[in-house]
Design a protein around this nucleic acid. Structure first.
Length: 363
DNA sequence: TCATGCGGGCGAC
DNA sequence: GTCGCCCGCATGA
């Protein structure tokens, strides 16, 4: 169970209790309640055994979105869409960024893409990547069920994720797109090009320290709160520096929780053609993903890419973190209006600059 | 290229 | 029968 998930569960239980008897339904019920007095705001990080009833107008619900990496699972029931969690991709070296954060990439949903992804290297230390599979539902992946019924979309989650949150879909997509763009540039000009990309994408002129700022802000995009919460970051600037596969210093207290939580998860060995052995800083020969991504390629700074979840996706993304539940991303819920909590809640459409400053391409 | 959804098929229970 | 999972296919971005 995730650290902090108790809180989450409590909130969700509260939510359920608020809904009273209408929450007694099960996704497999022949007939689902239609006398819904209160629909839920879309939840991007549903966890534990929760149920939600969304409006059929909710775009996120319509698309069966989740910030967890969920893949479609055939349950031979066309009425109920079932999805199972793919877990999270972590660094096989268990490396950390200079501020102690871990690499948590989003597993590709497509099987082929995921296999390809696993042949790639850790963007931080160039070590092998490992898929941390989800085992939060009786040893099996957490499953999400979606069912459209009348004017509502019923959602039910079974199992509690036993692994860190991966980056969101938007983050992964953004990182991929930037990565693609960068492959067209020579390594020697990457720094300049990166700045140019930022300029072109955001219209903003990065400061001289723009590259360090490509790291997520410690207080903004952290490990999931459930996995250690905010690490003690002495300084944002400290993110620059060594990129050894080992943490530059003992992990912060919160990290223990993180590793502890990640522990139960299954680390799958890299598949054939992947890194069967520990090969730090050495990509497989012929692996297009690694051939030009030595740490030196990071302008000598060894800048990691987005090693953790960043702002939520969706039309009006909500922030991840400890209070993600009921931090609703429902339409009309203005991002600006929810920019409280120290401005940590931000979405792509609300703060592109922030988003992009928190992106770093994996090559 | 990849996310997503659908459905056939298989094995385990 | 249910469930998890693999696979291929189609579609759309």
């Amino acid at each position: 169970m995730l650290k902090g998930a108790d809180d989450v569960g409590t909130e969700q239980e509260d939510s359920a209790s608020r809904h009273g008897e209408i929450m007694s339904w099960d996704i497999n019920d022949i007939k689902l309640p239609q006398d819904i007095r209160q629909i839920d705001w879309f939840q991007e990080w549903p966890d534990s055994y929760v149920k939600h009833i969304y409006s059929s107008e909710d775009k996120n619900a319509q698309r069966h979105h989740s910030s967890w990496a969920m893949r479609n699972t055939n349950n031979h029931n066309s009425r109920i869409l079932k999805k199972s969690c793919l877990g999270v991709v972590v660094c096989g070296n268990n490396c950390s960024t200079l501020d102690g954060r871990k690499i948590y990439l989003r597993p590709a949903i497509c099987d082929k893409a995921r296999q390809k992804q696993q042949r790639k290297c850790c963007p931080n230390c160039n070590g092998p990547l490992q898929l941390l599979s989800c085992r939060g539902h009786g040893g099996y992946p957490v499953t999400n069920f979606w069912r459209h019924e009348g004017q509502f979309i019923f959602f039910q989650s079974k199992g509690a994720h036993d692994h860190p949150r991966p980056e969101t879909k938007l983050e992964a997509e953004a990182r991929r797109s930037i990565q693609k763009a960068q492959t067209a540039f020579s390594p020697s000009s990457q720094r300049l090009k990166r700045i140019q990309e930022i300029e072109s994408l955001t219209g903003a002129v990065p400061r001289t320290e723009a590259l360090p700022l490509l790291f997520p802000k410690p207080d903004t995009y952290m490990l999931p709160a459930n996995f250690g919460g905010h690490l003690s970051k002495s300084s944002w600037e400290l993110m620059l520096g060594s990129c050894s596969g080992q943490p530059p210093y003992p992990r912060a207290a919160g990290e223990d929780g993180d590793s502890g939580e990640a522990g139960p998860a299954h680390i799958l060995p890299v598949k054939k053609g992947g890194h069967d052995t520990f090969r730090p800083n050495a990509g497989p020969l012929g692996d297009e993903s690694c051939e030009q991504k030595s740490p030196l390629a990071y302008g000598g700074s060894c800048l990691p890419p987005l090693p953790f979840p960043a702002p939520q996706g969706g039309p009006c993304p909500t922030a991840g973190g400890a209070h993600h539940h009921r931090q609703l991303s429902a339409p009309l819920r203005g991002c600006e209006g929810d920019m409280g909590e120290g401005g940590r809640r931000m979405g792509l459409n609300c703060s592109n600059d922030d988003m992009l400053f928190n992106l770093y391409p994996v090559r």
